[in-house]
Nucleic acid binder design. Structure first.
Length: 426
DNA sequence: TTTTGAGTTGTTCGA
DNA sequence: GTCGAACAACTCAAA
C-alpha cells in the first residue's frame, strides 16, 4: 500500500483493496526529493508529524523511505502496488512513470468525492463555469464513506525502512493526523457549521472548518466531510466550498498547463511590474496596509491564512502592485501547510481575473474596506501585528503615522489596474 | 441553431 | 448615513 495524499486508515478504499488482495501488506510512504525541495519548513514539519501519526495507527509498521519511486517500489518486489489515484500534473506524471516501469499499479479511489474528469456537460465536454459544474457534480453524486479495516496484517519494517524525517519548526502549526482531523471536524460541526454562511468570511473568528491541511494530506476524505450535511444555507455553503476544491481539480486536470500559465491567455500580454522592493514588502507583511500585513504575517508564522484574507492579499499583489499572480502563487506554495496545486493556481487566477469565472474587471478589493468589513474591531490585525496593539478601533485600519507608510496609494493603483486591463480587452 | 440569461467572495458615486 | 445603480465585454450553459 503506497500512501501519498491519503495518510489515513478510515474511508480509504485503496487500503481496503490492498488488504483484500494480500495476506500481508507493506504500508509505504516514499519521501520525494522534488516535493521536499518546493516545500517550506512548516509543511515538511506537518508531513513529518502526519507520518508519525499514521505510523502510530499502523502499530509502528509504516515504512518510510527516501528515493526514486520506481527504485523504492521495485526493492520490495511487489505483486501489486495499491494507490489512490492522483490527477494534478506532477502526481499523474509520476504515477505514469511507475506504471510504465512494469510495476503492477492498482488505482482505487481518489482524493475527491467525484474524480476529476467525471462531471461532464450534456455534450460530453467539461465545465468551465462553477455553478453549472456544481449542479452536475451534485447530480453525479458519490458513494458514502467506507469503514476503516478491522485488521491490518502488515510487514514489520526493518530499521533501515523507517527513515522518519526529523523536520521541526519553532512555530505553532496545525495538529497533524487522522485523529486530529476528525476531532477538529467534530468541533466545527458542533460549533461553527450552522453559522458557516455568515461567519466563514470573518477573519477575526474561528468560523471556518480548517480542513485544508487535513484534505491536502488526505488525513480525511471529502466524502466524510460531506456526509450528513443538510440543505440549509449554511450547510450548502460548506458543501459548495468542498465542490470548489473538486472544480479546480477538474479544471487543472483538463488544463494541466494552467498550473503556472494563464487560463485566459490574453492576460499574459498585460503590463506587469517586475517583483522588486514592493514584492519583498508584500512577502514580509509590511505594505503599510494593516489588514494585508496581518494576513501575510499569519501565513509566515502559522503556515495558514484565512480564506478571506487570501483573496485580499492576492488582489493587492496583482491589482495594487501589478505583479503577476505566479509570484504570489509560488510564495504561497512554499509557505502554506495546506498547499494544493489546483486550488492554489486557480484561486490565484480567479483573483487575478484570468481564471475560470473571471472576476469582473471592476472587482478590485479595497484593502482598508475589506478590513473594516471582515475584521471590524481589528482583533485579527492586533493578533499578528503587535506594534498596532494599542491603536484604537477607529484607527486600526488606517493608523496613519503610528504605522509603516503605505507602499502604494490604493486609489491610484486601482485606476492603474483598470487602465492596464483596458489595454488587453477585446 | 438561435437566443437568452447568468456569471463566489466588490467599490464607488450620487441621490 | 443609506441605498441602488453603474461599472465591459465576453463566454458559457441551457432552454
Amino acid at each position: 500500500m503506497w500512501f501519498r495524499r491519503d495518510l489515513r486508515l478510515a474511508d480509504n478504499p485503496a487500503l481496503l483493496s490492498a488488504i483484500a488482495n494480500a495476506d500481508e501488506i507493506v504500508p509505504l510512504f516514499i519521501l520525494d526529493p522534488n516535493l521536499i525541495k518546493q516545500a517550506g519548513n512548516k509543511r515538511l514539519t506537518y508531513l513529518a508529524n502526519s507520518l508519525r501519526a499514521l505510523n502510530e495507527s499502523l502499530g509502528g509498521r509504516l515504512h518510510v523511505i527516501a528515493g526514486d519511486q520506481v527504485e523504492v517500489l521495485k526493492s520490495f518486489n511487489p505483486l501489486e502496488v495499491h494507490i489512490s489515484k492522483e490527477y494534478e500534473p506532477y502526481g499523474a506524471a509520476r504515477d505514469k512513470r511507475v506504471l510504465d516501469s512494469g510495476i503492477n499499479l492498482i488505482e482505487t479511489g481518489s482524493p475527491y468525492a467525484v474524480a476529476p474528469g467525471r462531471v461532464r456537460k450534456p455534450d460530453d465536454t467539461n465545465y468551465r463555469v462553477y455553478t453549472p459544474f456544481y449542479k452536475g457534480w451534485l447530480a453525479h453524486g458519490w458513494r458514502g464513506p467506507v469503514a476503516a479495516p478491522k485488521e491490518i496484517n502488515a510487514v514489520q519494517p526493518r530499521k533501515a525502512d523507517q527513515q522518519f524525517p526529523d523536520w521541526t519548526c519553532d512555530f505553532d502549526i496545525p495538529k497533524a493526523g487522522e485523529v486530529a482531523a476528525l476531532e477538529r471536524f467534530n468541533w466545527f460541526r458542533k460549533n461553527a457549521l450552522d453559522s458557516y454562511d455568515e461567519m466563514r468570511n470573518m477573519a477575526d473568528t474561528d468560523g471556518t472548518s480548517r480542513m485544508s491541511a487535513h484534505l491536502k494530506f488526505g488525513e480525511v476524505h471529502p466524502r466524510t466531510l460531506l456526509q450528513g450535511l443538510n440543505n440549509s444555507k449554511a450547510h450548502d455553503t460548506f458543501r459548495k466550498e468542498i465542490a470548489w476544491r473538486e472544480f479546480y481539480a477538474d479544471v487543472l486536470f483538463h488544463n494541466p498547463h494552467t498550473i503556472d500559465e494563464y487560463y485566459v491567455e490574453k492576460f499574459a500580454n498585460m503590463r506587469y511590474e517586475e517583483p522588486g522592493e514592493n514584492f519583498k514588502a508584500w512577502c514580509e507583511g509590511r505594505t503599510g496596509y494593516p489588514f494585508v500585513d496581518a494576513a501575510m504575517r499569519q501565513l509566515i508564522t502559522t503556515g495558514w491564512m484565512h480564506n478571506r484574507t487570501r483573496m485580499v492579499v492576492a488582489s493587492f499583489l496583482v491589482k495594487d502592485l501589478h505583479i503577476e499572480w505566479q509570484y504570489g502563487a509560488n510564495f504561497f506554495m512554499e509557505l502554506l501547510v495546506d498547499y494544493d496545486p489546483a486550488s492554489n493556481s486557480h484561486g490565484w487566477q480567479w483573483t487575478a481575473g484570468c481564471g475560470t469565472d473571471a472576476s469582473p474587471y471592476y472587482r478590485v478589493f479595497n484593502p482598508i474596506e475589506q478590513g473594516r468589513k471582515f475584521d471590524p474591531n481589528g482583533d485579527y490585525i492586533r493578533k499578528y501585528i503587535p506594534e498596532l496593539r494599542d491603536v484604537p478601533n477607529e484607527l486600526i485600519h488606517e493608523p496613519g503615522l503610528s504605522y509603516i507608510a503605505p507602499i502604494v496609494d490604493h486609489k491610484v493603483e486601482r485606476v492603474e489596474a483598470l487602465a492596464r486591463l483596458e489595454e488587453i480587452k477585446g
